[in-house]
Write a protein that binds this DNA or RNA. Structure first.
Lengths: 341, 341
DNA sequence: CTGTTAGCGCTTTCAA
DNA sequence: TTGAAAGCGCTAACAG
């Protein structure tokens, strides 16, 4: 009476009840070989009677595969990455693949991420998908010698790895361009964390767009945030303090855009009448914010789906080819033509 | 060359390298018995040299426990439940418990949820935590005979089960009361899905508050949504069509409140000047919406933490007692005193 | 087609 | 203390 309840029924019991050998049951379960119809029926009956479910751990041990894929995200509650998790979930479940995802969070910390990797290794996952991540390429590549790897937000090359990435520089360019086309000339930017590759690329795109339009790049109009709401909040305050009177704002992700917008609201600065805002990501919430946020759509769900499909193929030793993810400006109501132009 | 890479190092190899028997290594790993210091050192050295990690599946098979707990959520991308997932994650990781959560999504579908249960059973999880869920009590109780269960949003009784719940009726009352205190007399309500217990309780609280204040309950001022943004959007349209001129709105969750607010924004109805809105849940985003949403705070993260702690205790055969979760009105800027009162 | 026989990597008596 | 040996539940040759 330890609360564990009766032990689960085993394959052997099924075999006994059906009057066949364990191997036959196994074969039927896995479709490994042809079996006489009568036996199949008996076995299936026994399985149903006993409500038998194969012990995945035992299967795993025996065939050297855990039937699970490790997924490293940064925060299980991140509105952006979760869309990707959903895509991964659907991909693995959809194929009836039998694979289950094992989600772990690295929280943007190298050590934390290393622990995650370690945990997943201990559980002998058959494949690994890393959403961005902060661990270094070398470590990743090392793991990739042991199992297939798909990674996003990075361009890693290797025999057992596929990387999925989008042209963030171009998207940053497009976003800024959108503002320029609306007649804005003083365009501020709230960038993401220094070390973040995506953030760097978006910033580069911003710079290029200004240059190509022969607009000056004013460094004081570039603030840095942490990709969270508070970061946007702080950054916009800093921008406001410059008194440089920008009329438009390109924010490196939607979460920071929310924070920025709150500050503007509090100060009575209207969006988009006084300042236009364009974000990045197109979180589900952006469509319902007031006003609905103009932003760059990142197909997070699709990206997760691709990642899931890719890791499955890799595990099965198939070839994978991944197109570059398209990024697209979604014009909604937080941007408008500059007044007086 | 199947891409699987070299096989991982085993306990036996460690034993060999350290010049001891496998059992000794096992004992050192698990602290199962005292071992001579010299051997311990040798083993630890070998483990380090070989970068050995125990195979969790093999451990699981041998000791009849998978070291994982199944978690059924409804949508891996739900802003509300994800906070709870985070709490669960922290709880399991924090204790250095060695347990890992296995997250699966039921998508509010009975069959889907049954599949989840089945998957978790096949993986022999040591415990189960179900976030609300739509599966019937009987099925749940049945699973609880096989493993400990903690469930939220329901009041289930059983030997191996603990349920965590909050007084939603009272919270619905408090929310409505807040509006009444601000001088509102025509208060509309957007309720959650018919079958949802929490939704029913919140609605009941709304009714009671009106009655106790001697305010009439106008049925046309009660609309039903699906707990998503679109639901709120549709519902508020329906409410507006009644032309009943409500000045305040109690919405059964924040997501629907966002949808509702968007409609009002589009129609030029100001929040809170023209209509006050109070939501429910206090999603992280609500603090950053414009204006910041007054709402009822549900401590989703803490709830997850409690659930995690509880399942761990249950698994270890310890007693658990759970307090009723406190729910609290958080006054922000989407509600204000009715004009002219 | 089907049963027998070894393991998969680890834990856990049982003796020593 | 420590090692030998017997499994945990399943798969996968290898013979028939």
């Amino acid at each position: 009476m330890d609360g564990r309840g009766p032990n689960a029924v085993t394959l052997e019991e099924v075999a006994r009840r059906a009057g066949v050998s364990p191997s036959t049951v196994s074969r039927i379960l896995n479709g490994t070989a042809r079996v006489r119809e009568s036996k199949r029926q008996a076995v299936e009956q026994a399985i149903a009677d006993l409500d038998y479910r194969p012990n995945v751990m035992a299967q795993g041990l025996a065939r050297g595969s855990s039937m699970s894929v490790g997924v490293i995200t940064q925060d299980i509650a991140s509105p952006f990455y979760n869309e990707s998790l959903k895509g991964i979930e659907d991909s693995l479940a959809g194929a009836g693949s039998g694979y289950a995802p094992l989600f772990v969070s690295g929280h943007w910390k190298k050590e934390k991420e290393a622990e995650c990797l370690s945990l997943l290794a201990a559980r002998r996952v058959d494949g690994l998908v890393v959403l961005t991540g902060v661990v270094d390429d070398a470590t990743l590549l090392d793991h990739a010698t042991r199992m297939p790897l798909v990674i996003t937000g990075r361009n890693l090359q290797g025999p057992n790895v596929v990387s999925i990435h989008a042209d963030n520089e171009q998207a940053g360019f497009d976003a800024t361009q959108h503002l320029i086309e609306l007649g804005h000339t003083r365009i501020a930017h709230i960038s993401g964390p220094e070390g973040n590759l995506d953030a760097q690329a978006r910033l580069a795109g911003y710079r290029r767009a200004l240059k190509e339009a022969n607009l000056p790049v004013e460094e004081r109009l570039i603030a840095t945030g942490d990709f969270h709401e508070t970061g946007g909040l702080l950054a916009v305050n800093q921008l406001l303090e410059t008194r440089l009177n920008f009329t438009a704002l390109f924010v490196a992700n939607d979460q920071m855009a929310y924070g920025a917008r709150l500050v503007l609201y509090r100060k009575g600065i209207r969006v988009p009448e006084d300042v236009s805002i364009i974000g990045f990501d197109d979180l589900p919430a952006s469509l319902y914010s007031t006003p609905p946020l103009t932003t760059v759509r990142q197909p997070a769900y699709d990206l997760g789906k691709m990642a899931g499909d890719a890791i499955l193929r890799l595990i099965h030793g198939q070839k994978v080819s991944i197109p570059t993810i398209p990024l697209q400006v979604i014009v909604r109501e937080s941007t408008m033509r500059r007044r007086g132009t």
